[in-house]
Simulated scan of single mutants.
Amino acid sequence: YTYFFKGMYDFSVGEYIRAIQSYKKAEKKLTRVLDEIEKAEFYFKMAEVFYHMKQTHVSMYYVQQAYDIYKKHDTYKIHRIKCHFVIAGNYDDLRTHDRALSHMKKALFLLDSMEDHSPLKAKALLNMGNSYNQMGSLFSAVPYYHKAIKAAKISGAKEITQAYYDLALIHFRNNEKIEGRGFFGKAMEQAEEFNDSLFQDLLNVLKALFIETGSRQKVMNALEALRTGQGYPYFEELALIAAEFYTMDKRMEDSIYFYNEMVCAQRQIQRGDFLYEV
């Protein structure tokens, strides 16, 4: 329990490698835990941290074990919903978005059956938008982001920040600067209200790339804050967006530079699986 709770704390502050180290130590003692639900909670936490570290198949292994236990107990619907979130996120990372959408629809069905107004509803709608967005289906994605914002306003969910951020990014990438600036401002306002340093860092990258001069150095200065275990997956995504931005602007030297930065971030993420104790 000491290692398990330490891992939970490390995860909550974005120290994913330390969280994995603690969870792996706790796992060695797991045979002594007799309660099936407690085991499911452990498996879910393992799935969650490996999902954030982009160790997709490892995450799927653990979340399947958690889900198999929770689905035997009708009173654990919320836990099943959270499992669907992780499964869907992993399928999105594997580029099998149809399977991700299937699990998000199951999560929304469970939430609707409970008439739940918790932050989970906003998160479910946000994840639906993300899946459609990654499929390139903006016509389907954008309404879900707006539904997520509406649900987040009701529940006070912090997911409202990401919904505004994603809408800002969508409009900026479509060269719709007025709309992009509008959602950017709302996202920054929410990030400050929730004291969300991660999204403040992400928004600073968008500001350097799409609002200010778009100079390579300014974008790199903004990206530097994301060179962390928590930040590297976002670094990878934004480096690719920067590369595409400079390609469209016919600044090929800058584009190649950010493609290389994206590859370096991918390597750093892949290394993460080997940094914990065996």
Rank of each mutant, 00 (worst) to 15 (best):
N130Q: 09
Y165W: 07
E179M: 11
A222L: 05
A157Y: 06
A208K: 07
K153R: 14
Q200V: 05
K153H: 11
A141E: 04
K186E: 12
F172E: 01
L206A: 00
L126V: 07
L209Q: 10
I149T: 04
E224K: 15
K150V: 04
E159S: 11
A124P: 05
M220P: 00
L167G: 01
G156W: 09
R216N: 08
V142D: 00
L138R: 11
I170M: 00
E189V: 03
A157R: 05
L125D: 02
D166W: 02
V219T: 10
P143A: 02
G136D: 06
I160E: 03
F199S: 01
D166A: 02
E192R: 14
S137E: 15
S155K: 08
Q200I: 13
E179C: 00
L198Y: 09
G136M: 06
N127E: 12
E159Q: 13
F210T: 02
A163N: 03
G214M: 07
D196V: 10
I160F: 03
G214N: 07
I170T: 10
K207H: 13
G180L: 04
I160R: 04
Y145R: 05
N221K: 14
A157W: 06
E189A: 11
D201C: 02
A187R: 06
G136S: 05
K158M: 03
L223A: 01
S215Q: 12
L198F: 07
L202E: 02
L223G: 02
M188H: 08
Y164E: 03
L206H: 08
G129S: 08
L209F: 06
G185W: 03
P143Y: 09
G182Q: 08
M128G: 00
K153Q: 13
F183S: 01
F210H: 05
L202T: 03
N221V: 03
R181C: 08
I211R: 01
I154R: 10
A124E: 04
L125S: 03
E224D: 13
N195V: 12
Q162A: 07
M188K: 12
M128A: 01
E192D: 11
K177P: 00
G129R: 07
G214I: 08
N204D: 13
A208P: 05
D196F: 11
S137C: 02
F199V: 03
A222R: 02
N221E: 15
L202S: 01
A124V: 10
S215W: 09
M220A: 08
N174P: 00
G214F: 09
L138E: 10
K158D: 06
K158E: 12
A141R: 06
K186N: 12
L126K: 09
A187S: 11
A148V: 06
K207D: 10
G129T: 11
K153V: 01
L203M: 04
L198T: 11
N195D: 14
F194M: 02
G136Y: 11
F139H: 13
D196K: 11
I178L: 10
N175Q: 14
E193Q: 13
G129E: 07
I160A: 01
E189Q: 15
E224Q: 14
K123F: 10
